[in-house]
Nucleic acid binder design. Structure first.
Lengths: 186, 186
DNA sequence: CGGGACATGTAAGATGTTACATGATTGA
DNA sequence: TCAATCATGTAACATCTTACATGTCCCG
């Protein structure tokens, strides 16, 4: 039975939306790419692809021209797959995603830019911006209240946590500016 | 059989080294604290505590004075627990930890500051600094090679990844300065 | 013709998630 | 006394990790 799709499934779906590929190629991408800290192990990739197929998100591309001979099976997203990713991008951003899944949110930003129209993309960026700012407020409040009772190393580690989110807030502002006025082009 | 200790176990051990506590209190800490993105679910905490007990890292504190009445069982680290944490802090830092477990490394920094002498702490900071710098070099190289072929959003997301590590490198430098000359106090 | 990369998959085992079960204590 | 909180735990389930199995193709 189709449970909740995992972050891995969305990451795979995103890659396939950019370019249909085989399981093996996807594994290589995860192994070679710094973005998205997912495992390149066959034991996670292939079952995930099977689940996605069951969901109707992807399907084997027709044997097609360049069937490169080996057992390679090129997978391509379906219309439903595209819809699932769009739906993800439109979904509200939750606190726990900001807390420990910022990587996934950055991925989502990339796919939102590819799949949504400029207006919706701007809305996504706005949601992301607000979510991060809210969490930053929380973190700073925590720091104010607890820093004094922490050892110096604890203060430094906590300030690192805050600085990481401040940095990301700055990059989000940059993205916001980038997509603010010149969304569609001639 | 004792497999490899998990990050959760080390996080729990660290908290217990600061202050003996019950499973429930540890759960509350995970729920309330921004540091360490571990689950506060009983289904992960209690089995982890049981494994740690099996390993001899912790043991129930004697019924002691303030047995607060309820079924509370206060757990305290043993000598072996302390040794396990020190060993973790002295261990070389691996690429994959820098890639997707910086939170754990910050935790480790806090516990290194609490458990190791200044000389060893400085060595830990140096290792952390080098590991992060090396990974940053890799990330920047990847950016140089691939940024051009990425969509704008992909470039922004990738630059966010880099900026996060640059921020952390700066905080590590701060820590390094902090522990450089005035390690022991008057 | 043999080794290495390509390519897909399964099996065993451990961990984590969610939901439930259980019971004591406190306070309204 | 009723509900909320404190407090520990288990069961079912899904996922991930690691290791293995299998077979094809290319190149030296």
């Amino acid at each position: 039975m189709p449970d909740q799709p995992t972050a891995l499934e969305y990451a795979l779906l995103g890659l396939l939306l950019q370019q249909p590929a085989s399981g093996y190629q996807l594994r290589r991408t995860f192994a070679a790419t710094p973005m998205g800290h997912h495992s390149d192990s066959p034991g996670s990739i292939y079952p995930a692809l099977k689940r996605m197929t069951r969901r109707g998100w992807i399907k084997p591309a027709p044997p097609s021209p360049a069937a490169n001979g080996r057992g390679t099976q090129v997978l391509a997203p379906t219309q439903r797959g595209r819809a699932a990713m769009s739906a993800l991008c439109r979904r509200p951003i939750e606190r726990h995603e900001v807390m420990h899944a910022m990587e996934s949110l950055w991925l989502r930003f990339v796919y939102a830019a590819a799949l949504l129209d400029v207006t919706e993309l701007r809305a996504f960026i706005e949601r992301l911006r607000n979510a991060v700012r809210e969490y930053l407020t929380e973190l700073r409040a925590y720091y104010r209240q607890h820093a004094k009772s922490l050892p110096p190393a604890g203060q430094i580690a906590l300030s690192a946590g805050i600085a990481i989110y401040e940095t990301q807030a700055r990059v989000i502002d940059r993205a916001r500016r980038h997509y603010s006025k010149e969304g569609s082009k001639p």
